[in-house]
């Protein structure tokens, strides 16, 4: 695995994409790869402070999403938001909230999941930072 920094644009509200982004970020970070996540668009809705895990992810999304949600409900699958928090705690993942989407929603920093975000950031700064590494989006 490369040590090149990994930058993840997380924009989808689809459960499987949130899950895969959280898995990718946390595993990369604990494997000594500097990792930053920029959360924007529909994805930010799963990070509303105080949402219980069963309300974090939208229903729908097709056959796979339904099967995945069913399997997750049985337990054993790490919750995406909790997994990202683990990645931050154990591997130092940096998590940024898109400044534009916060403004659009009228959210303040304390509307976001507690102790997860490093702050709000503009896309221009994130993209400039991402020039030093690999950029993937979910």
């Amino acid at each position: 695995m490369s040590d090149k920094p990994l930058y993840i644009l997380l924009v989808s509200g689809e459960r499987e994409k949130l899950q895969m982004a959280a898995m990718t970020a946390s595993v990369a970070a604990v494997s000594d790869r500097p990792t930053e996540v920029f959360v924007s668009m529909n994805a930010i809705l799963s990070f509303k402070r105080g949402l219980p895990p069963e309300e974090r992810y939208p229903e729908g999304g097709g056959f796979f999403a339904a099967q995945f949600a069913k399997a997750s409900a049985k337990g054993g699958t790490p919750d995406a938001v909790d997994l990202l928090a683990q990645g931050r705690m154990l591997g130092g993942v940096k998590v940024w909230a898109c400044a534009m989407v916060l403004d659009m929603l009228g959210w303040e920093d304390d509307d976001l999941t507690e102790d997860l975000f490093d702050g709000r950031l503009g896309l221009t700064k994130f993209l400039a930072d991402a020039e030093s590494g690999d950029l993937v989006s979910f």
Binding site: S26, G75, G76, P78, L83, L90, G91
Partner: peptide, 16 residues
């Protein structure tokens, strides 16, 4: 009972 990457994350927390 935990799926990937749950066991790995638990291992890392324990190693620390």
């Amino acid at each position: 009972g935990a799926f990937c990457p749950g066991p790995l994350m638990e291992l890392i927390a324990a190693l620390k």
